[in-house]
Design a protein around this nucleic acid. Structure first.
Lengths: 222, 222
DNA sequence: GTCCGAATACCACGAATGTGCTATTGCTAA
DNA sequence: TTAGCAATAGCACATTCGTGGTATTCGGAC
């Protein structure tokens, strides 16, 4: 429920929730936000549970500033819940954790930005505007990590020297087909498929179908 | 290592290469860079091929500003080449393309940042500093796309109702172990593993080991 | 207290797989 | 033109799988 601000009729204040267990930091942030003309820190919570259980029909937040290291449910798990309760709310992570796992998980769960607590106050306020403008504010260090994750996504496909035919057969195998089914699908004799698979196993240094499929997936051979 | 400033012999200028086929934009950029005190645009190329063939032993670039839509080899393919020729050089994409495929590929190949050509000049110069400071400068829109890609990475794991024990066994199966090997590793009888696998197959609606492993990988069950 | 599912274990048998061979046909590179 | 490799095809046999059963134990739900 937005109230009109002072003398003007502008009700377009950004509605912000804070989920942060550190009392001092929470107060500081709240002060910072409320001193900003177009922002309003409407709710404060010290845990995800509190925020989730807070029954609120009308006043959904525009942005949730969310810590990760919280008592009880971690902020990461909290993201999923908030996404269900408030699908259109942007979630901005604000934490001390900058390890790959936390960053990766938070972003996979749908966080719209990732800030570190050592960010200067203006940066935090800017980020709130940025996320509402369709951006994805990130700490410089975090952005770097994010790009690193991408390069790891494309593992340098090791060269096992598979021929095209072998790749094709491996592909079908990785779809769960049996040798006979592959043979039928490729208009080959069972023996040919068998022979190709023998060669594939040798090249991949495996000796079972699961080993081959596993390697195919893990090393992007498919 | 900061050296003394201005009138002294500081050679610590940031050495920048430009790979851009549009003559006008290239000139504009070059002027912009060379008018910046700590930057120097040492080489200009209108294609990746030119830049790659340019034989240069001494003066490796600190940053390459790279277009994607180039005649001949695309900027994306160029990244790999540059990464080999100049492993410690940062590559900043500067392009008009903001589609997911180009962004995704460029970042996977190891670009350190992704800017759009409509960025204001100061933003481009800032980004050069940022990338050297270990950051990953990105256009707001691009950063948003990048985070979106993450959320897509985590496909909503379908609930097949696998028990913990079953997941554990599926995991070993997906590592290429045989039933007997799994039994040994988990201190179970072969028969138990067999029974679990029977249940796993039923729950996943498959009837071969490859089918189960395939599903496990495709749907992030592992 | 009873019921149910998860985890454990066993048996049996037909189907599929893994692996040791050989062999023919093309194509390519030395 | 000869050697080598990919793709094709076949045979044989031991091993492993897939699947139909049954059975016990144990912890939680009703």
């Amino acid at each position: 429920m937005k109230k009109e601000v002072s003398h003007s009729k502008i009700k377009k204040q950004i509605n912000i929730w804070l989920v942060e267990d550190n009392v001092r930091y929470r107060k500081t942030l709240k002060g910072l936000i409320n001193r900003t003309s177009d922002m309003q820190c409407s709710e404060l919570f010290s845990s995800c549970e509190d925020a989730i259980n807070y029954n609120n029909q009308v006043d959904t937040p525009d942005v949730i500033l969310l810590d990760i290291g919280l008592p009880g449910m971690s902020g990461i798990r909290g993201i999923e819940k908030f996404k269900i309760l408030y699908p259109s709310t942007y979630i901005l992570i604000l934490t001390v954790y900058d390890d790959n796992d936390n960053v990766f998980e938070a972003l996979c769960e749908g966080a719209s930005g990732y800030l570190l607590k050592d960010s200067p106050p203006e940066k935090i306020l800017d980020s709130i505007h940025e996320v509402l403008a369709g951006g994805a504010p990130m700490n410089m260090k975090i952005a770097h990590k994010v790009l690193d994750m991408f390069t790891k996504l494309k593992p340098q496909t090791k060269i096992y020297g598979l021929t095209d035919r072998e790749k094709e057969i491996l592909h079908f195998l990785a779809d769960g087909l049996t040798k006979q089914q592959i043979a039928d699908k490729m208009f080959l004799s069972f023996h040919t498929v068998n022979a190709h698979l023998k060669n594939i196993y040798a090249k991949l240094h495996v000796n079972t179908c699961t080993g081959a499929v596993s390697k195919a997936f893990k090393e992007n051979l498919i």
